[in-house]
Amino acid sequence: MASDRVNWNGSDVITMRYEAPETMEAAVELLSSDEGARVLAGGTDLLVQLRAEMIEPSLVVDVKRIAAMREITKENDGIRVGAAVAGAELGEHEEFKATWPGVLEAFELIGSTQIQGRATMGGNLCNASPAADSVPAMIAAGATATILGPGGQRDVPVEDIAIGPGQTSLDKGELVTSFFFPKPAARTGDAYLRFIPRTEMDIAVVGAGICLTLDDSDICKAARVSLGAVAARALVVDEAADALIGTPVDEAALAKLAEAASAAAKPIDDKRGTKEFRIQVMGVMARRTAEIALARAKAN
């Protein structure tokens, strides 16, 4: 019985329907048709959850064959990135790389080189882990998600998609198809940093995405700060942004930012870090992230 059907653990009988539609509309139809349907984009979360028997979907809808979801397109007022674009693909897009280095570095922190060949921002967002790396960076960049569903298309700020661990605001049958990154104002810089105990292949203990814009005299005139892994979902922290706005992002402003970030952090004690550690290090990482964003804004 050295059959090709049987792999090493004999897992040849998982009864699960697999569909790989070629249009977004077909995908939405499939997702609407089955209570137990799940979207497969890169699969870097879904397949792990399947193997761990955390989920038992009756239908898996692979969206990687939908060309429109895998494109990066320049629009008049920004860049649109398909929700099923892999990290390795986005990393090769020179204009995106030059415009949103913070978003890209956040996305590229996910997993390994092999994972980067598969992982997508749509999947990272809709998996709805509070520790998702690309999410705070997208939120800081002011990205919106374009959603297609049985009721048509709508655009939603990225921060409104994940609502808690493993939970999204998407309605049944809805699919995030792309992300829109508005063209940044002049002298804008973004950055993302996370803390992990190792150097890679780990999940953020805290993460900070910051995007800021300077005026001609190097005063910060706009900022967005998003914090990851310190609450049930990525946070948008206006108090932290306010600490930067109107300042030259000097030591005093950075100290205020760190304080506001720590104050906003509402983490839990878990296997990845203690509460007190996360609160303290959240401030540290926010400050370090702002320093990188500042240097990038000055260079732009």
């Binding site: 105990p197 190792r198 150097t199 890679e200 292949m201 780990d202 296997k271």
Partner: peptide, 24 residues
């Protein structure tokens, strides 16, 4: 090893049982 209050292991995998990776 991280156990919960019922004595169940919470990190039975290489993601959260943090052995060093090459870049460490």
């Amino acid at each position: 090893y991280i156990y919960d209050d019922k004595g169940r292991l919470e990190n039975p995998g290489f993601l959260d049982y943090r052995m060093p990776v090459a870049s460490d």
